[in-house]
Design a protein around this nucleic acid. Structure first.
Lengths: 276, 276
DNA sequence: TTATTGATGTAATTTTACTACATGCTGGCC
DNA sequence: GGCCAGCATGTAGTAAAATTACATCAATAA
């Protein structure tokens, strides 16, 4: 819109050009001012402003207001910016949300290159699924466990190295081990992956693609590691992992068909009785 | 804007709700129609439409037009659509991600109306913070606990009704109790909130604004309940809760200033030693 | 100089948003 | 059951804003 005005500027009459220039200089004010005020501001009359609108291809002054707000409402990009100590509270929380949104958008764009179908196939016929994670990822593991068990598949979540290693040591070929790690740098995770894979189990990893764990996994969901430039950097990659597990969960439910709907509905009903 | 309307719908009068629904169904038309036409379309009178605008927090009909064009021009691509049994796997996972992204974007747009500052003030001088949640929200609670304790404030997470009630019964005035509930309909939660508030503690609730828990809370973060039209509906509101807690966490860290940076850096260093 | 065309402003008209007030309905209370 | 308070809704009027018709002025060409 603003570009259209700039382009039209030369072939306008002097007074109209004044109008155009004022709008270009104060687009924000122009967006929701009144015809009378705009005319006064440009030291001209109201009809001239209307004529200006016609000349730049609009139906009238009203449309100008609409087009301007349209042009001004920024193309809302949720770019990641670090939070610094000087940010006001409201700035900071917006930045945190933006970072989270951004990481989900990135994850979404990479969904097609992820081995979702293979994972679903492995899980569908799994004897059991174990979700392993330490620290923050431990909560993701619990959450996933809680979610997948409602599909009727035996699930467990493992929160420390000894348990993970023990589990890996006793896996069977139709077991699935899901490893959740932010950095993917825990040596013991890679060892567990190697061990479980050797025993025939499927090892799914949601982790930094450039890591030992990633190399040992049978199925890899790459979750790029966001370098922590600031101590305030939020745990947005954890959100992305959760969303990814949601997606896998739904895909698995779909693959199971009626059985899954039935299980989900039952567990939901069980809750509804207790509610109210 | 559209989200704001959706959220406001339940507490409007019938005719005003008709207006809201029509706008949600035909946002594009509504964006540049006239007051008279909109009133006719909704089979109501012009003042009712104006009253509707006031009730959703706008100055008048004119502002509605501006806000609507604003909302429409930003590419709202991540609209929530339900997953059905006929969806292909790739369709389904994309939809799940979209729903998650959408819920975060909505949450972001409503951040300004949330009592973040008040919460931060209460938490900053808190003797202890407890995060309470059942089921899926329990994992959110654990996660939050794990996150906030690194700021040097004693934290705990509570996962069952008896614990929550016991905690509420022994709270002190400078304690903070954070209640996490999807529906907000658990009676015992509301009871715990009442009890803790009576003892002078600050009760923060992240829940459905139209619920008993919400009514009893001292500080409310409204998390609109997405009606589960389909069993496949993902737990995207849980993601929004997590992101919101991230935001509060960062805001609190900023408020603490140097002390927080120090605590965060130390706990990060502690991890880095074990990694490598 | 005068007629003509285009630019610009004045004033009237119409449209539009908003407001004050009246009506009608619902739910509680005597 | 009747009465009143409070709320929802509509009618009619008002103020303001946008648009249009028309008059005036300036510049150019005959």
């Amino acid at each position: 819109m603003l570009a259209t005005i700039t382009q039209a500027l030369p072939r306008l009459s002097p007074s109209e050009r004044r109008v155009g220039r004022w709008i270009l200089e104060h687009p924000k004010e122009a967006a929701n001012t009144t015809l009378a005020r705009l005319a006064r501001e440009c030291e001209t009359s109201e009809p001239t402003v209307v004529r200006f609108c016609r000349h730049v291809g609009l139906a009238g002054f009203r449309e100008l207001a609409i087009r301007l707000t349209e042009a001004l409402s920024s193309p809302t990009t949720y770019v990641h910016r670090d939070v610094g100590p000087d940010d006001s509270t409201s700035d900071a929380v917006i930045k945190v949300m933006d970072a989270s949104i951004q990481s989900l958008i990135e994850m979404r764009s990479q969904l097609s290159s992820m081995p979702i179908d293979e994972t679903v196939i492995a899980m569908k016929s799994a004897r059991q699924i174990a979700f392993a994670g330490l620290g923050a990822s431990g909560h993701v593991a619990s959450d996933a466990c809680h979610k997948f068990f409602r599909l009727g598949i035996p699930c467990s979540s493992l929160h420390d190295i000894p348990m993970i290693l023990q589990f890996a040591a006793i896996t069977q070929p139709d077991d699935v081990l899901v490893l959740l790690s932010h950095s993917g740098r825990w040596q013991d995770f890679a060892r567990a992956a190697k061990l479980a894979k050797k025993r025939g189990a499927t090892v799914v990893a949601l982790t930094n693609p450039d890591s030992g764990v990633a190399r040992e996994a049978s199925l890899l969901f790459p979750c790029p590691l966001i370098e922590d430039t600031s101590v305030y950097t939020p745990m947005s990659s954890r959100l992305a992992q959760l969303a990814l597990l949601d997606a896998i969960h739904v895909a698995l439910a779909l693959a199971q068909g009626d059985a899954a709907s039935e299980n989900l509905r039952r567990s939901k009903d069980a809750l509804n009785i207790e509610l109210s």
